[in-house]
């Protein structure tokens, strides 16, 4: 699974690094309980600004993209839940 976390200025201001930290922590949770998870590798990448918030007046940051699916107003709990749902047996 590929998780891309936008770390552009606005996303960083609104907590992108906290999301990255929580995903790192989730990796530990998964490794401690590996029997209950698929072997699929969790690949996390911090990426440059995708430009979503610059094209709209709506609040959309932080942005996280999981396997091509974009999550707007991402929070660590919604991101972690999505990851866990995908790889938990």
């Amino acid at each position: 699974m590929k998780v891309k976390v936008c770390v552009g200025s606005n996303c960083t201001l609104l907590g992108a690094m906290s999301i990255l930290d929580q995903i790192d922590d989730l990796k530990i949770i998964i490794s401690e309980d590996s029997d209950n998870y698929n072997d699929e590798e969790l690949e996390v990448e911090a990426i440059r600004c995708l430009g979503f918030c610059k094209n709209t007046d709506e609040k959309v940051a932080p942005i996280v993209v999981i396997d091509g699916e974009t999550m707007y107003n991402a929070t660590s709990q919604t991101v972690m839940e999505k990851i866990v749902n995908k790889i938990r047996k």
Partner: peptide, 14 residues
């Protein structure tokens, strides 16, 4: 400072 970067539209990594 981060608030200033955002206000000025500066993307550091670029």
């Amino acid at each position: 400072l981060m608030g200033m970067f955002v206000a000025k539209g500066i993307e550091l990594s670029e």
